[in-house]
Design a protein around this nucleic acid. Structure first.
Lengths: 107, 107
DNA sequence: TATATTTGAAACCAATTGGTTGCAAATATA
DNA sequence: TATATTTGCAACCAATTGGTTTCAAATATA
């Protein structure tokens, strides 16, 4: 079974769960209340997110609090870097072009 | 059919294709040569990437050159921003903590 | 013009996915 | 102790996915 961050964030419900618990940890029941699906469906999403270490859990009595593992998100950021390098390069090239045009106008 | 950037980048072959054509446009045949799968499988990936506007094509005779639409990548970057805000906040809090400890050491 | 090359599209297939229902385990409460 | 709550897990199901084979269209070349 393939289990990585990219596959995890492919599902819109999972992205919504991530955004929901980003600021504060929540229990599965509390999370499920925010969605139209059943608790079990949310539970499966939480399992997938846990498997790829995007969230961690903390047991408190019979309740389990899930929280976002923000460090893991940097993996996506790191992958994006190679492309960010390209668009920043293009931007600076555009910048130079504008500078050249301005120079020509002055002359 | 759900067709968005997040679903598109979920597949490792598609991510590899994106990285491959990021610097220069390539034909489906040329792209397929870099992978173990058939040309048709690559073609299907190209279709999916095209449908969510992550790549664009340019016909040259009977060849079609595919290139990465780097602007579309910013959509992922934009989504990441909400989480980046969190980790930068945590970093600055850590920064403050270190500063406080240093202060205490001096005193 | 006949043939080869490049490509997309359709039909099909096995594996995976997101979802459901039902159940058992653990913890809290009466 | 008996009951209620919170939760994960297994079994099952329809839809989607990534892949294959086959075919047709368009363009280049002999």
């Amino acid at each position: 079974m393939r289990r990585d961050v990219f596959q995890a964030i492919a599902d819109p419900t999972r992205r919504a769960i991530m955004a929901l618990i980003a600021m504060q940890a929540m229990t599965p029941n509390a999370i499920a209340e925010h969605f139209d699906t059943t608790r079990q469906a949310v539970s499966k999403h939480l399992r997938i997110l846990t498997e790829c270490e995007l969230i961690t859990q903390e047991q408190q009595g019979r309740e389990i609090y899930y929280q976002l593992e923000i460090e893991k998100m940097k993996e996506i950021d790191k992958w994006l870097e190679q492309f960010r390098a390209i668009w920043e390069k293009r931007f600076s090239q555009l910048d130079q072009l504008i500078a050249t045009i301005k120079k020509q106008k002055k002359a």
